[in-house]
Design a protein around this nucleic acid. Structure first.
Lengths: 213, 213
DNA sequence: ATAGCGTCCTGACAATCGTCAGGTGGGCCA
DNA sequence: TGGCCCACCTGACGATTGTCAGGACGCTAT
């Protein structure tokens, strides 16, 4: 009924289509479609983008498009699976578990690395929420909850705070929100201020983490 | 050519319509239309909401609607003027100038008061950006820039940092972003954690402000 | 060369969109 | 009571939407 990506499950259901036999071709064309769609969705918003625009930008014929994706919603779901559900924000928890450096340093390093990479994923996910079905929205939320829970566990472990302490959960939530600072504000931030941004965000993170001790 | 709201200018152009004589009635109907539209825009996103839905929700006839607003874009512009441009985030700078309490306390008090009030304005503005004309987008950005500039001036004044210091600008930007934390994450935060949230955010703000000294 | 098959594309569908012309009705003033 | 003005509404317009049936095309194997 639905193909599943390689991850541990929990991602959005992707329709199966078997009109085209050549699996490699399917992959190629789907990549074209998804790449073009992402650009357009980010620029104009999901609902304002037409199938015809996607076809023009991806070079896929309007009828052929439906040999590779089931419908417009299916494009969004595949994009979110590719960007959001496969995104390595969960790596933050793993890194806290593995890296013996001080918590605040681990966090700073993480932000410095991921700030720009996650940009598209964050913007697409936050802005697409209204266009998702309730079930898909639920899955998005559950993934966030899971990430926050893992992060909380590592954070408690490293700072000595209790995992049930609501402050731990709040800080976790906050750390993830901080990761979206760059993407959401880059219509205002100028180039070259990124190091300043990191320094100040780092200071904020330090303070919050210190409170947990 | 365009009505102007009472504020100091810089808001979005609203079309003038003179089909209806009774000014009070115009105000009433427009309020109905804008209230209904806001709910729908927040729930489904601007592009996905139809005029027919707005009419059904507001109780205004589909043809009569155009006696009170010029077109769909006009609704969004009026909403942003009412919510975003009239929003009192600028009050943060004023408050910093007037309140002799420590900077961090002033900030905490501000967040505590405005967290929920600005919710709709923030979500609508952030999510509507793709549906605005380039000119309107420019006005949104200019307003943010202005707010940040004023905030930077007060912040420099109070902390002794130089106004040209890029860290000041970054912290200002950050303070405004923080104001959107609640709205953006309330699909995850549970009720009753607001005080915890404020405590941790407060600690973060303290740390950043201290760095400016 | 020809048959067979898998991909691509022309062209169109029903539905829905934003918008509005033009008629209707009811209340107010003479 | 009659006329008029003004807000309301019916009904429809052209355009655009997501979707797809069915034919055209090109390749490969014989």
């Amino acid at each position: 009924m639905a193909e599943r990506a390689g991850s541990e499950g929990g991602d959005l259901a992707e329709a199966r289509i078997d009109a085209i036999r050549d699996a490699g071709l399917v992959e190629t064309r789907r990549a074209q479609i998804l790449d073009a769609s992402l650009q357009l969705f980010l620029k104009k918003g999901y609902a304002a983008v037409t199938i015809r625009e996607i076809c023009a930008a991806s070079g896929v014929n309007q009828a052929s498009l439906y040999d590779y994706i089931a419908n417009k919603q299916d494009i969004l779901r595949r994009l979110l699976n590719r960007l959001w559900f496969a995104r390595d924000i969960e790596g933050l928890a793993d890194r806290l578990a593995a890296d013996p450096a001080p918590v605040s340093e681990v966090l700073r390093a993480y932000y410095a690395e991921n700030w720009k990479t996650n940009r598209d994923a964050i913007l697409l996910a936050y802005r697409s929420v209204p266009h998702l079905t309730p079930e898909d929205r639920k899955l998005l939320r559950e993934r966030e909850e899971r990430v926050i829970r893992e992060l909380s566990a590592r954070l408690a472990e490293r700072t000595g705070a209790l995992e049930e302490d609501p402050r731990v959960r709040t800080v976790s939530n906050f750390l993830i929100y901080l990761n979206a600072f760059g993407p959401f504000r880059d219509w205002l931030m100028r180039d070259g201020e990124e190091d300043v941004m990191l320094e100040m965000v780092g200071a904020a993170v330090d303070a919050m983490v210190a409170r947990l001790g």
